[in-house]
Design a protein around this nucleic acid. Structure first.
Lengths: 338, 338
DNA sequence: TTGTACGCGTTATCAA
DNA sequence: TTGATAACGCGTACAA
């Protein structure tokens, strides 16, 4: 037996004295082959160290067992946790993750979607709902399954696995109101092209309105995702001429910046000022005082999203809209105003 | 013109009244085609919405423009930052990232390496140096370029982009010794199959030895990467019958856990106990007191690793060994013992 | 500068 | 249960 450097199906077939069809079957449908020939073939496969050529396989089978995900950034604990779970679940099902990031830009995201599809992704994980309608058509024309994650929506034509940002935010705000807060300020991530941020703010406004607190003039600062931005925005709120008793932050990272700044300004939390976060990343429990925030099941979301996507590949008409629960984490950063 | 649902090179050729070869050239070597035919062809490409079939392209060209990376976990800020930069640099060069994670397991990593190669990765990003030699042969036999990252080694036959964990750790320890510390304790990530952790501990021991401090009996606890583990290990060190004046942690996350625990135990940092970290993740500056830690250029590492890898694809014999500098971040968590 | 024609390594259909 | 063989869509010598 002369061992070729990089063996093909043909090499295996010749060596095992069967046809290429039989070898292919041994690998893909072992039960449609007699155990005798199967053993013989698999032995040769092993001896030769054969692995299918990916390009050829993709060309012939019209599938790659590869799934794409486009996240705003990997450099954010919430996406990292979700992605990790998504990838693990794919792995358990013999599939691989193709990953891109959009830097929170809708145009870049669109490019990346096209790029991952061009790269042969069998399906896509998308984050949030907010994107150009034509990109959805693009995917639907090509019959590429996709799942929207991190956000929940009722649209039965599109699968999603997410949570109700509006509702969670509403509840947290209501809690603060019940404690006696009336003067609110908000630090949010940029809300255009980010429906999570948008709905969190919306939830706050609705709760204020429902409790007859002026929400038209709610002090709101939008900024990019970073501790530093959280600090600066917090400072601006505190130094405004209508100082709030509570600063609600769109996510834990911004809240961490706010807390840091509060310390630097000599403000005690929650005696002098209450601060809330959102996401309950690990950071939230390390901060002093521990953040009052909203817990979100990122890992579960990633796992379930992978499952839904895999089902959609099997059954192109399968759709599912899953809302995962959230819950308020009682930290020490929210208390009644003094 | 009848528009096919999913156009092929052939469709474009027919519509533009040229050969498939010409269309292919227009796309891959635009300058080897007259501007007149090029314009004509590209217009048809656009009109038809043609995109190359990935499988066919890979099969014919023997490359996928896809690069694999296997990280221990995405759920760790340092890998997330490096990966993000790696992916961005790939993207700038028209390549895509295939991502897998090993959960810090050598066997899983090996599986993933084989899997990514089977998925057509043109090259691989590996983390750390410690793995079975046969997996290197596997890659070399198949002429798959790879770059080792996060660790630096002198081996000129293998490219790497990393930093000197030993040296950085040595310097940080020396600094502590110079402040007067003599009673050390260490919390480290598991050091088998993790040369970063291994070398950081080694750097501590060497510094102790060079300063005539007993390093044979250095209290050392190895644990998994989490805040909770950091807390528990810290508690164990403090409650031992030979209480240290400083607890050096193998990374910032463990250090964060230690700091949290110190607060809970009513210990003041750095008056009662000094704590150090490693990595300088964003978290380090939010903790009170800010961590004294080692800054590492993760983003730069990811970017440079991508560049080296891309070069290796062009020139299979190209190798580079790059050591990135580190520097100590002076926080407030390290001071002279009282 | 352009076209012809073959090869790439699988999968899958159909017949034996 | 197995084998022969036709796609699959693109790249690229080679020829014109």
């Amino acid at each position: 037996m002369n061992k070729p450097e990089i063996p093909t199906l043909d090499d295996v077939a010749k060596e095992a004295r069967v046809s290429t069809a039989t070898v292919s079957r041994c690998l893909n449908f072992p039960d449609r082959v007699s155990s005798k020939t199967r053993d013989k073939v698999l032995k040769v496969v092993k001896d030769l160290g054969y692995t299918p050529n990916f390009g050829a396989q993709a060309l012939a089978a019209k599938r790659t067992n590869t799934f794409g995900a486009i996240v705003p950034t990997m450099n954010n604990a919430i996406f990292a946790a979700g992605l990790q779970a998504f990838q693990e679940e794919l792995g358990r099902n013999g599939a691989t993750l193709l990953l891109a990031s959009s830097s929170y830009s809708a145009e870049v995201e669109e490019e990346q979607i096209r790029s991952l599809v061009a790269r042969g992704a069998d399906g896509l994980l998308l984050i949030g709902t907010q994107r150009n309608e034509k990109i959805y058509s693009f995917l639907e024309d090509r019959k590429i399954p996709y799942v929207i994650s991190w956000s929940y929506q009722d649209d039965k034509t599109r699968s999603c696995v997410g949570f109700d940002n509006f509702q969670a935010s509403y509840e947290l705000t209501t809690k603060a109101i019940n404690l006696g807060h009336k003067k609110f300020a908000v630090i949010s991530a940029h809300a255009n092209s980010n429906d999570r941020a948008y709905n969190r703010v919306k939830g706050i406004r609705k709760a204020l309105k429902d409790n007859n607190i002026d929400e038209q003039n709610l002090p709101l600062i939008e900024c990019g995702y970073s501790i530093e931005n959280g600090s600066q925005s917090f400072k601006a709120h505190i130094e405004s001429n209508n100082r709030p008793t509570i600063v609600m932050c769109g996510n834990d990272v911004l809240a961490a910046g706010a807390v840091k700044q509060a310390h630097q300004m000599g403000l005690k939390i929650p005696e002098d000022i209450s601060i809330t976060g959102f996401d309950n990343i690990e950071l939230a429990s390390v901060i002093e005082p521990a953040l009052t925030t909203v817990h979100v099941r990122h890992k579960r979301m990633g796992m379930v999203a992978a499952q839904v996507l895999l089902k959609q590949v099997e059954d192109k008409s399968y759709r599912e809209n899953i809302k995962l629960e959230t819950r308020i984490i009682e930290g020490k950063s929210l208390a009644k105003p003094s």
